[in-house]
Amino acid sequence: MSIGALDAAGAYGRAAGLAPVTTRPGGVADTGASGEAGGFGQMVQSMVEQTAGNLHAAETASSKQVAGKGDLIDVVTAMGAAEMALDTVVAVRDKVVGAYSEIMRMQI
């Protein structure tokens, strides 16, 4: 199954709580945001911040469990959320690097 770049950006935008990415006539991407907010860079920054928060929460839950003050279920849940967030950021990074490589291979 192949996911288009706009579909992926729209999905990550919705997951991050940002404006959805739609396509205007002519295939031009429209993030739904007017000039005051973000776009793709803001979405990536938000994803990285959320991922850092998830990783910190997982680390905190893990250290509480080691100290005997936490619940194992909380640790597993936090680790799962952190792993999923990190996998999402890595997938976005891979798509961006792939798109950049494709652009660099284009003939002028």
Rank of each mutant, 00 (worst) to 15 (best):
M1A: 14
M1F: 11
M1V: 08
S2I: 15
S2W: 04
I3A: 09
G4A: 12
A5D: 12
A5F: 11
A5M: 10
D7N: 09
A8R: 03
A11T: 03
A11Q: 07
Y12D: 12
Y12R: 14
Y12P: 10
G13L: 09
G13V: 06
R14C: 14
A15L: 10
A19M: 08
A19P: 09
P20Y: 00
V21T: 05
V21W: 02
V21H: 03
T22V: 04
T22K: 12
T22L: 05
T23Q: 09
T23M: 15
R24Q: 12
R24D: 10
P25Q: 08
G26K: 02
G27S: 04
V28N: 14
T31S: 15
T31D: 02
G32N: 11
G32Y: 02
G32H: 06
G32P: 05
A33C: 08
S34C: 07
S34N: 12
G35V: 01
E36G: 10
E36D: 15
A37G: 08
G38M: 15
G39H: 04
G39L: 03
G39I: 00
G41F: 01
Q42T: 14
M43V: 06
V44Y: 14
V44C: 13
Q45V: 07
Q45Y: 09
Q45R: 15
Q45G: 09
S46V: 10
M47Q: 06
V48D: 08
E49C: 12
Q50A: 15
T51A: 08
T51I: 02
A52E: 12
A52P: 02
A52L: 12
G53P: 06
N54K: 15
L55V: 09
H56R: 14
A57D: 00
A58Q: 04
A58T: 02
E59M: 12
E59N: 15
E59F: 06
T60Y: 14
T60L: 12
A61Q: 03
A61T: 02
S62F: 00
S63Q: 14
K64L: 05
K64S: 07
Q65V: 02
V66F: 09
V66C: 05
V66K: 05
G68A: 01
D71C: 00
L72A: 12
D74H: 01
D74C: 01
V75Q: 02
V75F: 03
T77H: 02
T77S: 06
T77Y: 04
A78S: 05
A78L: 03
A78C: 04
M79R: 14
M79G: 12
G80I: 01
A81K: 01
A81R: 00
A82Y: 01
A82L: 01
M84I: 04
M84H: 14
A85E: 04
A85F: 00
A85V: 02
A85H: 04
L86M: 07
L86Q: 13
T88E: 08
T88N: 13
T88L: 06
T88I: 10
V89P: 02
A91P: 05
A91Y: 07
V92S: 10
R93M: 11
R93I: 06
R93V: 09
D94M: 01
D94R: 11
D94N: 13
V96Q: 08
V97F: 03
V97W: 00
V97Y: 06
A99I: 06
A99T: 03
A99N: 07
Y100T: 11
E102G: 03
E102A: 04
E102C: 00
I103A: 14
R105N: 10
R105L: 10
M106F: 06
M106T: 13
Q107S: 12
I108S: 15
I108Q: 15
